[in-house]
């Protein structure tokens, strides 16, 4: 089982004009095997939520709690969170020059499992994950994210999701900047992950398009640093038809 519980989470960042509050009390529970979509306009704090859960040092937690299966996530370092079972697929994956994808994946897998993967099966697993994401076998020899196209970066994130096999995946605008073919490949990868026993997914997106391929159990509309409304998939359909205006007006 895996449950990610976010309660009244408040987060600020430091700006030139002093601290700025971005998340104003977010409450959300992702239960065993559930997929939640968070939708919201630009600047609503969606990415802040993702990075705060993952532990990026830029974001300062001023209140609230985050627990994974009852364990206090906010007390953990960034790498401890990943080892506890959290995974963040980033909107802008970072280039690490000189570090090959193969070396990176093996190092990450070793860290998460606490032991090095068996060489023979591991190479097969990596090649399989690459193939499923339509990435060439030579991809493993390239430096992490360096010179990757936007689509390759996102597919590489989902290949990692496949191989590292976390309990809960947070996908931060994984769909943005993808053409329709890449979107289908990425969505299929996420769906394969969801089919595994008890996996939670928090899907953060600006567009409804990806929800045609990944069917969420719950949809939350995120406005001005908090959840403005929660519902089922029908909420996404309403957004598709009417946009965010109703929620923006309510927030003013």
């Amino acid at each position: 089982m895996s449950t990610l519980e976010i309660k009244d989470l408040q987060v600020q960042v430091q700006t030139e004009d002093g601290p700025k509050e971005i998340l104003k009390g977010v409450t959300l529970t992702i239960k065993d095997g559930e997929t939640h979509a968070i939708m919201g306009p630009n600047g609503s704090g969606k990415s802040t939520l993702a990075y705060s859960i993952a532990g990026h040092p830029r974001y300062e937690i001023t209140g609230g709690t985050v627990t994974l299966d009852g364990e206090d996530v906010l007390e953990m370092s960034v790498d401890e969170r990943a080892r506890a079972g959290l995974f963040l697929a980033m909107q802008y994956p970072v280039e690490v020059p000189g570090v090959s994808v193969a070396n990176f994946l093996r190092t990450a897998k070793t860290a998460i499992d606490g032991e090095a993967p068996k060489l023979r099966t591991w190479v097969k697993e990596v090649n399989g994950a690459m193939e499923r994401m339509n990435l060439d076998a030579s991809f493993s020899q390239r430096s992490v994210n360096e010179g990757f196209s936007g689509g390759e970066k996102k597919r590489h994130e989902i290949a990692q999701l496949d191989l590292l096999d976390p309990k809960v995946a947070i996908l931060d605008e994984t769909d943005s900047g993808l053409d329709i073919d890449a979107l289908k490949v990425v969505s299929a990868g996420v769906n394969r992950f969801r089919e595994r026993e008890g996996k939670g997914v928090l899907l953060i997106t600006h567009y409804t398009r990806i929800l045609r391929y990944i069917k969420p159990d719950h949809v939350h509309v995120f406005v001005a640093g908090k959840v403005a409304e929660s519902g089922g998939p029908e909420l996404a359909e309403e957004l598709e038809a009417n946009g965010y205006e109703r929620f923006l007006e309510a927030a003013v």
Binding site: S77, V78, D79, R83, F87, P93, V96, F104, I112, Q160
Partner: peptide, 13 residues
Amino acid sequence: NQLFYLRSRGISE
């Protein structure tokens, strides 16, 4: 950001 990316995959500092 590089360190964060690597650490977010479980790799120690």
